[in-house]
């Protein structure tokens, strides 16, 4: 069975020790725990790369499950505040792709998927929310 993998990469405005990041860190903890409890959630992992980039990887049962989580509740609230903590990127920071159930995408693979959508635009191997309908089979879309 296919599931949906997600990767997001964003550049932090502050160093990890900066008090300006405390509220973000608290929010990130709560978002990770809220994701664990969300319907359709399979797995998630947060990483800080080179003390500069905040990365999230997650796996969901469907695009709809991920969309519900991203655009409601605590995640949505923090999304609206994200400019407080992240430098606006010139390139896209998020990518989606399909994985077989049980897959936990590595950071290297996630970064490769992001490079791919940045270089080639959305396709079967790397897409975004707006193009997901084209690239995700109907059967897996409905499995919330």
């Amino acid at each position: 069975m296919l599931q949906l993998a997600q990767f997001n990469l964003a550049k932090l405005r502050y160093g990890l020790d900066d008090p300006g990041l405390t509220r973000f860190e608290i929010g990130a903890n709560m978002i990770r725990r809220a994701a664990d409890q969300a319907q359709g959630h399979v797995w998630n992992q947060q990483d800080v790369i080179d003390e500069t980039y905040f990365a999230t990887r997650s796996v969901w049962r469907s695009v709809e499950a991920l969309e519900d989580f991203v655009y409601s509740g605590i995640h949505h609230r923090y999304l609206k505040l994200s400019a407080n903590w992240f430098v606006p990127g010139e390139e896209r920071g998020m990518v989606l792709w399909q994985v077989t159930a049980g897959t936990r995408p590595s950071l290297a693979e996630a970064q490769a998927r992001l490079q791919r959508i940045r270089a080639d635009g959305p396709g079967q191997e790397a897409f975004d929310f707006s193009t997901s309908r084209r690239f995700v089979a109907a059967a897996s879309r409905s499995a919330r």
Binding site: A34, Q37, G73, I74
Partner: peptide, 8 residues
């Protein structure tokens, strides 16, 4: 413990 949607 539930992570509450505080706003809601």
């Amino acid at each position: 413990l539930k992570v509450p949607d505080v706003e809601k």
